[in-house]
């Protein structure tokens, strides 16, 4: 058992736990955009930074990654923490001016405007990497990845072409914190990542409910007969 304080409050944690997990459990409000409990932490968005004091030393760390230690003092809203957090939000406001989520979090932190020129080519993507990770680890197909570096970095399918392995499941859409990824179902067809998917029709209610490729993928993985999977969740 590890003992330390968060904003002066004594807390206990298991060895190897990250500060963020303990803080959330204890009711402290630390904003995050790239953290997800099924996919772990990368430390990309830098919103969850906190100040850790150890004796005379203090440093800013990402709470989603920093393992708890005995005797440390964690401050979730020190002046340095707020400087980093507000700067990150102001920078993201300029990158994704149309993102309601960013605007909301920024406003909550007293950032209602950005001094920087607004981008018009980044959409709502903040490069949190959750779509890439959920595709690889939760779905198991790795249709997405990052290309480029620096400001030109972006999420894409290989060479920006329709991915051979994408099953059109939409897990990336569901996990995206800002609603950046475009997916549309119309007339029995789903469009996502520039790929066209035929939607399967439920034999009972006759509604379109999932891409055929996704059902085939599940059938292959689980051994469940495709006929069973064709029945939509509502009719099961």
């Amino acid at each position: 058992m590890v003992e330390f304080t968060i904003n002066g409050k004594k807390v206990e944690a298991e060895k190897d736990e990250a500060i963020l997990d303990v803080a959330m459990r204890e009711g402290f409000d630390i904003p995050t955009l790239c953290y997800h409990d099924t996919l772990g932490s990368d430390g990309r968005c830098r919103l969850c930074v906190v100040e850790v004091r150890k004796g005379n030393r203090k440093r800013i760390v990402t709470s989603c990654l920093y393992p708890v230690e005995n005797g440390i003092e964690v401050l979730t809203e020190s002046p340095d923490v707020l400087l980093v957090r507000k700067t990150v939000l102001e920078l993201l406001l300029a990158r994704c001016p149309d993102s309601e989520v960013i605007r909301y979090i920024a406003k909550e932190h007293g950032v209602s405007n950005t001094r920087y020129a607004k981008d018009n080519d980044k959409g709502k993507c903040i490069l949190c990497n959750l779509c890439v990770k959920t595709c690889e680890f939760n779905v198991g197909v790795t249709a997405l990845g990052m290309s480029g570096k620096g400001p030109a970095k972006k999420v894409t399918t290989p060479y920006g072409e329709p991915s051979r392995v994408c099953i059109g499941c939409g897990a990336c859409v569901a996990i995206c914190p800002t609603g950046h990824i475009y997916m549309e179902d119309r007339d029995g067809v789903r469009m996502i990542w520039n790929k066209r998917f035929e939607l399967a029709r439920c034999p009972k209610c006759n509604r379109y409910h999932a891409p055929v490729e996704q059902l085939e993928f599940i059938a292959g993985k689980s051994g469940t007969p495709i006929e069973e999977l064709l029945i939509c969740p509502d009719c099961k």
């Binding site: 990368d42 300029a94 920087y116 480029g148 620096g150 400001p151």
Partner: peptide, 21 residues
């Protein structure tokens, strides 16, 4: 540094290019 930032974290990717601007 704008060109060579890997782009993983926000302050470096977005902040350095704004310093450049």
């Amino acid at each position: 540094l704008v060109d060579e930032s890997c782009g993983k974290c926000t302050p470096c990717r977005e902040g350095v290019r704004r310093m450049f601007e």
